[in-house]
Design a protein around this nucleic acid. Structure first.
Lengths: 240, 240
DNA sequence: CGGAGTGTGAAC
DNA sequence: GTTCACACTCCG
């Protein structure tokens, strides 16, 4: 395949591409590439890591699948190949480094798993009353799936704000927001965002309609996960 | 060290090389490689054994040191990883262990001859865990028999997925798959296929349980056949 | 796409 | 814990 797809584990704008080898001894195998929002191509995890700099920990990032793998944990012991790589150890090249919330969704902690899922039972919320007939795709439900043996069943439902919001982008945005700040995640609260999604009134909030997480939600969530300090632990995001 | 040395235990022209790992978790360890007179590189004893075939008995050969170790003696060990199926080891005489039916040649290509051979490499996959006790008939072994003077000993073992799969059908399906596409042949990988064979998740794959062909298998095969582009050339198919 | 170099799970 | 045998990466 030659198609570039959004990568949920990376910030909006990053693309992932998988190219199948057509011939030779490795026919059928594939190569994975990433493209930054500016179009720069990345062919390996070390290359990506160098670009993102030391501030970002890709330890849990699985280059091939494009997802965060909690199970990988800090196993990064791979030393650079003895030749030409040692040169790029310092800071990333800021001239080419991304402008947009680059580090947003690159998590260090063993959390966050993103999956697609079509068949879900969901509760609807009050917002439905004011919703468009069927103009925008159903969107998302966010919940806190499994934690160890715990099963969590709470959902939040959100709605895409426009056709330009690819599902993955929204997923990514929400995940970013949840992990970047301890502030409450509310979504976009201004109606202006509906008319022109490119004008975000609040870039620290995900591009979705407003929703509310109550203190009680947080308490319950923390309780479920046995958390003391983290307010919200997003464990799974599913497509509805 | 990077120097290639002669190896007295092997025929003239063969070289041995030991390379120390320079970095990573395994830094300081070494890898041993052998080179055939034509320059082909060998990375393991099984690989070497497959290449040399019956003409050379490597039973006492110590791959790491490159010497014959009488103490090792006929220790038929090392089966395929994660494989508990191909039990025939040692040097069973396949000529007597003949298969029941020789359905072989479906091919128009310069190929196909059918023979039996017990020493095999077989891989099964995770699905094994869910396999029925002994409900389905043994099935098939596929291998790449003779090419000129070369003897090849590699086998793949496959299992019929249901009583409705006539042997011929399976043979045919595999052969078709091998010849119709350059894509890897994997068999059916969904466990769902077990329960109802009429529901094939992947019609481009033969109706058999999933199996694996390693990179080396492919290289070897291509080399034997002097192929540049075809990944797999099925040389023989026998009933077990 | 190849292949040297390293990872890695299963078998010792 | 170590070794084996093969998969995979990553850069040419």
């Amino acid at each position: 395949s030659r198609k570039k797809t959004d990568c949920p584990a990376l910030p909006p704008g990053w693309k992932k591409e998988e190219v199948i080898r057509k011939s030779g001894l490795s026919a059928g195998k594939s190569d994975v590439y990433y493209y930054s929002p500016t179009g720069k191509k990345f062919r390996s995890k070390p290359q990506l890591s160098r670009y993102l700099g030391n501030s970002v920990d890709l330890g849990c990032f699985d280059f091939r699948t494009g997802k965060m793998m909690p199970s990988k944990m800090q196993k990064n012991k791979q030393r650079l190949r003895s030749d030409n790589l040692s040169l790029s150890k310092g800071k990333p090249d800021l001239n080419t480094a991304l402008p947009i919330r680059q580090t947003a969704s690159i998590f260090k902690q063993p959390v966050t798993k993103v999956v697609n899922h079509p068949n879900n039972k969901v509760k609807t919320d009050l917002q439905r009353a004011t919703e468009q007939p069927r103009q925008v795709p159903p969107s998302l439900r966010v919940f806190s799936g499994r934690f160890g043996r715990q099963k969590v069943q709470r959902w939040m439902e959100m709605f895409c704000m426009g056709p330009d919001s690819a599902d993955e982008t929204l997923l990514s945005a929400i995940a970013s927001a949840l992990h970047m700040s301890s502030a409450p995640i509310t979504g976009q609260t201004s109606s202006a965002a509906d008319k022109n999604p490119s004008i975000w009134l609040n870039t620290s909030q995900p591009l979705c309609k407003a929703f509310t997480v109550t203190d009680d939600d947080i308490r319950k969530n923390n309780e479920l996960f046995g958390l003391k300090k983290r307010r919200i632990s997003l464990y799974e995001i599913r497509m509805v």
